[in-house]
């Protein structure tokens, strides 16, 4: 059962990790928590469903459907993320740090109610797209969906890592995160880099949304809330602002939840408590998170 719970947790954690990246990228550069990110994730799921119900998409073979839905959901979520930044955060760039945070909460409430009122207030079934089969691993089994969720997540996270570490744009992003003013002086268009962070974060959120929809088979206007909190916790656990930390935090929380609910009697009732309890414990010992760097307060 241990391996089985590990597999369950890994799939769950991959989704958390993808979303956590969106939080951490934005925080790394702007030092703000983008509370609207959970709603970008939720919208991403509806975008993906919309893409799948397009008549020219639904006729294609499963693999093409998946690819198109993934690209469309990532694109639409990326644009939404950048749009939110432009409308709700950019005008507040020089306001106090609290202002964009409150603006983010406002955007989150707005988007949730938008879908609630104008799309649907019910759970909507989400197609599985790929056929379901199981791979036996000793006593455990891994389903095709779990393989897909884990594979796509790790692929995207690999891309992101490559992008940040090896490309010049990625270098510019790191520079902006390190010291925005200095980056600006050395000719980096920091405003565009900020937009880029929102674009990438949104795209990863959109991908997570599609995977989440396929994995659980239903989506709803409030689906972002709990997942968003968990992903944010993951980002903080790993050290907010740190990309590898977000992935590590996401996977850890997913696995902890599965093991907690799987092994502790009555554990499923207290499932949500495990991740937050671990967060508190880690923060007590390492306030900067697992991989976070200790930085002095910026002036």
């Amino acid at each position: 059962m241990f391996v089985q719970q590990l597999i369950n947790g890994l799939a769950l954690g991959s989704i958390y990790a993808l979303i956590a990246l969106g939080y951490t990228l934005v925080y790394g550069i702007l030092l703000m928590v983008n509370f609207a990110h959970s709603e970008i994730f939720m919208l991403g799921a509806f975008f993906a469903l919309g893409a799948l119900s397009l008549s020219w998409v639904s006729g294609l073979p499963a693999f093409m459907q998946l690819l198109l839905a993934l690209l469309l959901a990532m694109f639409a979520s990326a644009v939404t993320g950048a749009l939110i930044e432009r409308v709700a955060y950019k005008p507040l760039r020089h306001a106090s740090r609290l202002a964009p945070l409150i603006s983010a909460i406002g955007v989150s409430i707005f988007l949730q109610n938008l879908v609630f009122l104008f799309v649907t207030n019910q759970s909507v079934p989400f197609p599985r797209i790929v056929p379901l089969w199981h791979l036996e691993l000793g006593n455990s089994q891994i389903s095709s969906l779990q393989i897909l969720v884990i594979a796509v997540s790790f692929l995207l996270m690999g891309f992101l890592r490559f992008f940040i570490q090896k490309t010049s744009l990625g270098k510019a992003m790191r520079a902006t995160a390190g010291d925005r003013m200095m980056a600006e002086f050395s000719g980096i268009p920091t405003e565009r880099i900020i937009s880029l962070a929102f674009l990438i974060g949104g795209a990863l959120g959109g991908a997570a949304a599609l995977l989440n929809g396929m994995y659980y088979g239903s989506i709803k206007y409030n689906m972002g809330f709990l997942v968003g909190i968990k992903a944010f916790t993951a980002a903080v656990l790993g050290g907010i602002g740190n990309v590898t930390g977000a992935v590590l935090g996401g996977l850890l929380i997913g696995i902890l939840e599965s093991l907690g609910a799987g092994y502790i009697p009555g554990g499923s009732e207290w499932k949500d408590i495990f991740s937050f309890a671990v967060l508190i414990l880690v923060l007590l010992v390492r306030p900067e998170g697992l991989l976070g760097e200790r930085v002095s307060e910026k002036v």
Partner: peptide, 11 residues
Amino acid sequence: GDKDFKALITR
């Protein structure tokens, strides 16, 4: 409101 019951079901 929870969506993931896989750990519980596995047990």
